[in-house]
Design a protein around this nucleic acid. Structure first.
Lengths: 192, 192
DNA sequence: GCTAGAATGGACTCGTGAGTCCAAAAACCG
DNA sequence: CGGTTTTTGGACTCACGAGTCCATTCTAGC
């Protein structure tokens, strides 16, 4: 693949991602992507021979990377209580800005969650996210700010579930309170 | 509408719900529903004049009622720690049984979450669920088992977010650990 | 039992969107 | 350069699924 080729491919993925963020995966057609990215049917199938599913999966990968990178550098630096608070604020702000469209969820229900590729993307995302939180907890245990008897992985799992659910509630109802409550209560409980 | 009419309508909704539970909302067509319920196009549009969207919304209502009724009577009777544990087990069992298909989520991304009707259904479900949990917490405060200074609504919001997220993770990855962690950690923190 | 309104069956239209195909243009490499 | 491969444009096919329509059958009340 030539330099021009990779550029086009990337343009397609990013355009598709933007389209899906704005209008949802259900409503987005290949023609929409074509129009937005200034490409042709030929190109779409040249770069994604397996068609729409392959493109959607590529977009899903792209979006899942954004989820974590949008939380950096705070997520990777949970080394003091103010830092935890900064991360908490970052997460809330990120999802407030995103509004009620969740591209990844949208993508996943389109692809079918059972699909090996789709599952791999989400599993990878969840694992990495939980690992970073657990590292933060372990660091706080190291400096004596969190009870050393706590199971860091289990606590991280619970906290991550709270975030996920808070985001879910916000997407479904438009209310941010559950996300805030989950983060605040979760962090407060670590802190005791 | 005659007696026969309501029976048919209900048969359609339940058949559609079953189809969607098995194969997802994206993959389910009116023809599938027709075949499964032994009805004709004429009937489908007779009972749901606005077509597929109206049917899907009816199915969504139906499913959202199941979510809460599947947790009864435990959810309505959170009056002792063993009762909380029984509820927790019920929730875990329910979602283990459901597997990786989430009909409601599937339905919602199909309908578009912004839709007034769709949003009303989810909001109602979340509200009622959270209210029941909060009542349980208040009861435990009443008998001195939970710190009276705790904000019951906020704690319920956080716990519900944990459940939602745990379910979400399980649907996405197939793993039940986050749901268990969210429930166990959440309840343990009430208990202190 | 007769009639108005409800319920049913199923053939038909119609738009849309995924995917195919091939020829023209551009890029790469010796 | 010249040949080869990649990239691009866009017309075309094809299937499928939502929704329409009307003729027929059934139901309920008088």
């Amino acid at each position: 693949m030539t330099r021009k080729g990779v550029a086009t491919r990337q343009r397609i993925v990013e355009g598709a991602a933007a389209e899906i963020r704005e209008r949802g995966a259900v409503a987005t057609t290949l023609d929409d992507v074509r129009a937005r990215t200034g490409t042709s049917k030929g190109q779409l199938f040249h770069y994604f021979p397996d068609g729409k599913d392959e493109l959607l999966l590529a977009v899903a990968k792209h979006e899942s990377e954004r989820v974590l990178s949008d939380q950096q550098p705070q997520l990777g630096d949970l080394t003091s209580w103010p830092a935890w608070q900064a991360w908490r604020d970052r997460v809330v702000a990120r999802y407030l800005a995103q509004g009620t469209e969740c591209p990844l969820n949208s993508l996943m229900s389109q692809l079918g969650r059972g699909t090996p590729g789709a599952r791999a993307v989400t599993t990878e995302l969840i694992d990495q996210w939980q690992r970073e939180i657990a590292n933060g907890i372990r660091h706080m245990q190291g400096i004596g700010e969190v009870d050393g008897a706590l199971d860091a992985d289990r606590s991280a799992a619970a906290l991550l579930a709270g975030i996920q659910g808070g985001v879910g509630v916000m997407i479904a109802t438009g209310r941010i309170e559950n996300l805030e409550a989950a983060l605040d209560v979760g962090i407060a409980n670590l802190r005791r």
